[in-house]
Write a protein that binds this DNA or RNA. Structure first.
Length: 637
DNA sequence: TCGTGGACTTAGTATCTATCAG
DNA sequence: CTGATAGATACTAAGTCCACGA
């Protein structure tokens, strides 16, 4: 009933402003999106009371059952119509939650699991045993072959020992953790072999926890929390050549945790016998809890899930900024090309760096401390990271980039550039050592300050977003054929996605099973081919007989259909093969989740009649709900 | 203007789970 | 039904960017 009521109202709104409402598919009403609340607000207040009753009667959270229960959809949107934008920097008015969940306390090893030092059994104190266990678990990981890791671990481990232990255990290579390791392996094996009932019970227990800790109330909405579990203790796993790898990440106690919630909410209770570090009521930030991690001294936060309104709005804003850049990108490009000729070194460097950020989607490149892995971005490039070739492989003025970027992922690219850029780079490199900064007159704050003058809200990372989304749009236009079948269309989408991932250098380790799974796929394809040959033979025979009787003609038709079906299946397998091989070292997820304006994808789906579910899984649909409701088929970047 | 800390986004990988062939 | 596998999700490290204080 509510549905009908709403639907009638929606129709009015459709007439009012076509832009905001899109379609009614099957049983689902695709409702106004949350960001267009002001225009439609007055049409909807009339149903406010009914909706509120509906909401009170159920305790479904905003994000739940979004696609199955229309009522839930209504609920999600209802509040948003009522909300007002605050531009005083406050992010919420009301915030209530249960506080974070702590790691389970340490359980001592059974007494038959022994640790040996220098061949002799040795009982460890509880604390020393726990930390030894962290190491034992990692014994067959590459990390434990690294000197820095071992040195850091051993240093921190010794700090947890009793004096007696300290005086005895002085050499890591004399430690034998084998029994502990075997015990942990056995334990995880046991966990894996749990019976169905045990698994179910565990699942239910977990659901209880999520129900209790996993949600918060924020301005009238029940929203999912992203990470309500506090990080358990363990050994720090830095990426690349991290100088702190192996250091002990200590157990976080309530006494280390700050809580943020509204004054008039029910303040979360700390675990019995403990107290919070402090309780704040700061509406200018979005975190619910925070603590300082001991290895790098960084603040860690408990924040909302990406499906929340707060995060969704921010995401939307990000893409709006990128679209704004689209409108002035020509001017910006003309300007920086012009500045390659500037008299001032500072400006030339800025202009060349911006060219790289724009053309190659490089990251800004903040300075880093000594106690972090040595990685760089655009502004922090050093002379040793590029090579200049007047000519390379028939191309003129080639710059070869070779450096480690974020997460110590290698960036290697041979890029032909304009002569002027090339000459400038030669100039920047004059009289410098390899370890000197390429852009010595430049850093990210200079760059961003300049960018902000060119366009309000413009920073270096906007170029990455913009170029990624622009590339997607352009690749989709180029690759998609309207008369392809669905599998082919999706391959095109993935290829466009892939082009972006390549641009942004999103890599992954080749999956361990890649080789094997490719072989299997090949076998499948061969088998399918064989089946087709077989079926075709059968079909031909049937065709001969088909003239004889109606019944035999039917058989022929059946066989014909079967051949067609088999061929379709073969096509799908072949597409899968290409797709998977092309994906071997490229990770699509990151760009899909963080760089591609979802409205482009949604519009593409609608235009080519592909179900959203084919390109976005559940998590992704939750995150991009705002776009799924908003974008019409005509949305282009 | 420069360094630092805080807040928030972006990132790859480890682990879990749903699905599918056998 | 079962084990392999691929895809989904959890996890947390590592970036970006901005505000603030000296």
């Amino acid at each position: 009933m509510i549905e009908m009521f709403l639907w009638n109202n929606l129709r009015n709104i459709v007439k009012f402003n076509k832009k905001f409402i899109y379609h009614q598919t099957n049983h689902r009403i695709s409702v106004l999106n949350q960001f267009c609340i002001f225009e439609v607000k007055y049409f909807c207040t009339c149903i406010k009371t009914e909706l509120e009753q509906e909401i009170k009667s159920e305790s479904i959270s905003d994000h739940q059952s979004y696609e199955t229960k229309n009522v839930t959809i209504i609920k999600w949107n209802k509040f948003r119509w009522e909300e007002e934008k605050k531009d005083d920097g406050t992010k919420w008015k009301f915030l209530e939650h249960r506080g974070p969940m702590f790691a389970p306390p340490y359980e001592k090893l059974p007494s038959n699991i022994k640790f040996f030092y220098d061949g002799k059994e040795m009982r460890l104190s509880e604390e020393a045993e726990e930390v030894a266990g962290f190491y034992a678990r990692m014994l067959d990981h590459d990390y434990t072959t690294k000197d820095i890791f071992n040195k850091n671990f051993f240093g921190d481990w010794r700090k947890c020992m009793t004096e007696k232990e300290q005086s005895k255990i002085v050499d890591l290579s004399k430690c034998n953790f084998k029994q502990m390791q075997a015990y942990f392996l056995e334990l995880s094996e046991k966990n894996r072999n749990r019976t169905k009932e045990e698994k179910l019970a565990l699942k239910e227990k977990n659901e209880e926890i999520v129900k209790e800790y996993g949600f918060c109330k924020i301005d009238g909405h029940k929203e999912k929390i992203g990470n309500f579990r506090i990080e358990p203790p363990g050994l720090f796993r830095g990426r690349g050549e991290h100088p702190k790898m192996g250091k002990l990440k200590k157990r976080v106690k309530p006494e280390h945790v700050s809580i943020n919630c509204s004054q008039d909410s029910e303040i979360p209770k700390p675990p019995a016998g403990h107290r919070w570090k402090d309780v704040r009521h700061d509406p200018t930030v979005t975190w619910l809890a925070s603590w300082t991690e001991n290895v790098q001294g960084q603040v860690k936060y408990v924040m909302l899930n990406a499906s929340s309104k707060l995060k969704g709005e921010k995401d939307w804003q990000k893409y709006e900024t990128a679209r704004k850049l689209h409108r002035c990108i020509d001017k910006i490009r003309t300007t920086y090309k012009d500045e390659w000729k500037s008299k001032e070194m500072r400006i030339r460097q800025r202009a060349v760096a911006l060219y790289f950020i724009d053309k190659l989607a490089l990251r800004a490149g903040n300075e880093k401390d000594e106690d972090q892995a040595d990685t760089v971005g655009c502004c922090s490039l050093r002379v040793e990271h590029i090579q200049l070739h007047e000519e390379k492989d028939d191309k003129e003025y080639v710059v070869v980039f070779d450096f480690l970027g974020k997460d110590s992922i290698r960036y290697y690219n041979e890029v032909p550039v304009e002569k002027r850029v090339f000459k400038n780079l030669q100039l920047f490199m004059e009289n410098k050592k390899g370890s000197d900064d390429l852009f010595d007159r430049l850093n990210t704050s200079v760059m961003n300050k300049h960018l902000n003058e060119l366009m309000e809200g413009l920073t270096a990372k906007v170029f990455r977003t913009y170029n990624a989304s622009f590339t997607l749009q352009q690749q989709l236009d180029e690759l998609t054929n309207a008369d392809d079948n669905e599998a082919e269309k999706i391959l095109s989408y993935n290829r466009a996605n892939r082009a972006v991932a390549v641009l942004c250098n999103h890599q992954r380790a080749v999956p361990k099973t890649h080789e094997k799974s490719m072989e299997k796929l090949k076998e499948k394809i061969d088998a399918k081919r064989e089946a087709i040959r077989e079926a075709e033979r059968g079909m031909k025979e049937a065709k001969r007989d088909a003239k004889n009787s109606v019944k035999e003609k039917q058989i022929y038709e059946k066989k014909k259909l079967q051949v067609k079906r088999l061929n379709d299946q073969l096509g799908k397998l072949q597409i899968q093969e290409t797709d998977r091989d092309e994906n071997k070292t490229i990770a699509l997820g990151t760009s899909k989740l963080n760089y591609l304006d979802p409205r482009i994808s949604v519009a593409w789906c609608k235009k080519f009649n592909v179900a959203i579910e084919k390109i976005y899984n559940k998590t992704q649909r939750d995150k991009f709900r705002w776009a799924i409701d908003m974008a019409g088929p005509e949305f282009v970047f």
